[in-house]
């Protein structure tokens, strides 16, 4: 066996080639997926949440809110795309925080890899989880009677919008996960952020009966825009305005929180 020290090419500058960067992200994403394989229970939330929520909301509120379960499925399930996306996104920070507690992150931070690669790989594996969950939601809802009145392309667009917004929220969640001390704190704060967003929106009920101040909030709430655009993409109706709103939010959240999260990753402790 070789006894030479430093078989690796010395790096003369701070930059990492795009190819190496991609390879690092690939290796780290593989790690994330292997962790899921080793701990299948970590998938329970992604698999069961869409099923349980759909059943609960459709049968508990369906009759009261929309007059019939069938009508309510068409109304609520598109909104659930965003609701599931954001719930899964907020859980990312909790996981990242526990990762930091174990010292694995210290190891990564002493390796000559791109600053963002650990977080990007997390975003990728979480997006896979989220996509699976959204597909389960739609499939299960179709079993309960959901009809796609438009077409497969529109359905895909609806999924893509939910994923894009989820990605923006993943960066927020990761920043929280690194900024707060314990996983419990991350979970608590995350909950406080998403609860008002989820219920102060058009996701579960039309906003027309809400008081004025709440209606004002629902109008700027991105989850309303997400619910409205998904509804239009599945049931038909004007899409452009709410969809652009969602896209603007997604891009904006990513543009602001991704660099902050990466900086926090670099500086932590």
């Amino acid at each position: 066996m070789s006894a030479a020290v430093l078989p690796l090419p010395p790096l003369d500058d701070q930059r990492i080639s795009p190819r190496a960067y991609l390879a690092h992200i690939g290796a780290l994403t593989r790690r994330n997926l292997m962790r899921i394989k080793a701990d299948p229970e970590s998938m329970f939330d992604a698999i069961l949440m869409p099923i349980i929520f759909t059943v609960l909301f459709v049968y508990v509120f369906g009759g009261a809110v929309a007059g019939s379960q069938g009508h309510y499925i068409q109304y609520m399930v598109p909104g659930m795309l965003g609701q599931i996306g954001i719930s899964l996104a907020m859980a990312v920070g909790t996981g990242l925080n526990s990762d930091f507690q174990t010292g694995v992150m210290d190891r990564f931070r002493t390796l000559p890899i791109g600053r963002a690669s650990v977080l990007i790989s997390k975003l990728i594996s979480e997006s896979c989880r989220s996509l699976l969950s959204l597909v389960i939601l739609i499939s299960f809802a179709m079993l309960l009677g959901l009809r796609i009145h438009t077409g497969p392309l529109q359905l895909l667009l609806a999924l893509a919008l939910a994923m894009a917004f989820g990605a923006g929220m993943v960066w927020v969640s990761m920043l929280l996960g690194m900024a707060l001390k314990s996983p419990q704190a991350v979970q608590g704060i995350g909950f406080l952020i998403i609860m008002p967003l989820q219920f102060g929106s058009s996701t579960f009920a039309p906003t027309s009966t809400m008081p004025g101040w709440l209606q004002a909030f629902t109008k700027v709430n991105p989850l309303s825009a997400l619910a409205d655009s998904s509804r239009a993409l599945i049931n038909g109706g004007p899409v452009l305005h709410p969809a652009l709103q969602v896209l603007a939010w997604s891009v904006g959240l990513t543009a602001v929180f991704a660099p902050l999260a990466v900086m926090k990753f670099k500086k932590r402790t």
Partner: peptide, 15 residues
């Protein structure tokens, strides 16, 4: 980054 390529670390707590 250059420094990281030249070092190995075993911390006090398993990583």
């Amino acid at each position: 980054r250059q420094l990281r390529r030249a070092i190995g670390l075993t911390g006090q707590y398993a990583s």
